[in-house]
């Protein structure tokens, strides 16, 4: 069944807390047609480059464009997979190493669709959303993050 989705905000200032993620899982206990959830959590990694350790990543985005693009991705994923629901949250601002900056959560009747939809959504977010990360080192210098 085709479902109309409105453009939702995915951005949150600061890190995504474990309690927010736990609450998000808890909220699905009334959706008993779900048989499988898949969750991806992106965490800021303390890369060491030329002896300098990354202390934080400061995320910025072309927000209006990113939200429009995310809406298109969401519609495409729902058209491709029989999902019950999908939730996406991405951090903006300075996120310290070890903190969560991306939360993608897909749910379906059976595990395979939830897992595949989650993987594809994460890949598309990284490739298609106009978001940038400034890797700030412990010595206050910085470089711009590049996705692999």
């Amino acid at each position: 069944m085709a479902t109309e989705h409105k453009i939702r905000n995915i951005f949150t200032t600061g890190p995504i807390s474990a309690s927010f993620i736990a609450d998000s899982i808890q909220k699905h206990d009334t959706k008993t047609n779900i048989g499988g959830h898949s969750i991806f959590l992106g965490q800021v990694r303390a890369d060491v480059i030329d002896g300098n350790k990354v202390a934080a990543i400061e995320y910025t985005a072309y927000e209006e464009m990113a939200l429009e693009k995310m809406h298109q991705i969401r519609e495409a994923i729902f058209a491709k997979y029989p999902l019950v629901c999908m939730h996406v949250h991405h951090s903006l601002g300075k996120i310290a190493a070890g903190e969560i900056c991306l939360f993608v959560f897909t749910s379906s009747a059976h595990r395979r669709e939830a897992i595949d939809a989650c993987t594809e959504t994460v890949e598309r977010i990284k490739a298609e959303l106009p978001i940038w990360g400034k890797e700030i080192f412990e010595n206050e210098s910085y470089q711009w993050k590049e996705n692999r």
Partner: peptide
């Protein structure tokens, strides 16, 4: 008009 360097979300 926006100039967008390579994306680096996630």
């Amino acid at each position: 008009v926006a100039l967008l360097p390579p994306f680096a979300g996630g």
